[in-house]
Amino acid sequence: MPETLSAWERVLLARNPARPHTQDYVADLISGFVELHGDRRFGDDPALLGGIGTFRGRAVVVVGHRKGSNTQENLTHNFGMPRPEGYRKALRLMQHAEKFGMPLIAFVDTPGAEPGIGSEERGQAVAIAENLLALASLRVPTVAVVIGEGGSGGALAISVADRILMLENAIYAVASPEACAAILWKDATKAPEAAATMRVTAADLYGFGIVDEVIPEPVPAHEQPTQTIQRVGDAIERHLSELEAMVQDGDAGLDALLAARYQKYRRIGRWVEETDPTRHPNGPVPSHTAD
């Protein structure tokens, strides 16, 4: 892709309805996929796809946001915006992955968690929070790939993984550029400016040390879907193999994996710190510094 694409142009590519979606990745990369439905609590959320299958020789659990390729499909799948039962289905499948020692692969592609009356009544916030907690200590290797839109907490709820990969034209941000523009500029039409200001692109996130690899798109994903999906599969396999090597010796390896996962998120953040030691009555802080 030309380096000169603006952040906003990448936002539009990330949202392109013809772009390959989670179900396309599952179809091409996962053999014998069995979709597992429902959260065993309230319902089955069609905005979140999950199940088990084989990925290049290993049994895995897959979860991902499910967007449609046309309006009808998008209405069925709520534009890829999960409700609490979607996150609870994902949680159930994460625990399933841990129980059977299956690595977890997550495909991230959502404008965000659904804002709605029912979602609030059924605890959208706590559903997301419980997934963050579970992912922090899930005792299997985890890889998340942002394939399109990484929309805020609704994306984070399945993507706190050992490795976060991003397609070149995917985006990841704390809010949609429209919402950011509406809040900070009081004008939603300033979304293109907001996209640039919020630094939403894969290159930005890689530069910040938040994502581990940017998967190139020599042409936009929807123009070469098969090749893009295989390239994503190759990247997942490479990272999974590294993580699997770490956990070969069982519990000690899993402890090391979890310690590394904790440190990966522990060090994210930028701040300025006054170093006057007299301000720290309890002595020096643990040895984490701004990077």
Partner: peptide
């Protein structure tokens, strides 16, 4: 989350919750 630190703010959700997992342990 604080909009002005977009991805860093988002990741504080993961970071703080992960620390609480340790408090729970």
């Amino acid at each position: 989350a604080r909009m002005q630190e977009s991805p860093f703010s988002l990741m504080q959700m993961a970071k703080t919750t992960a620390a609480l997992a340790r408090l729970g342990e």
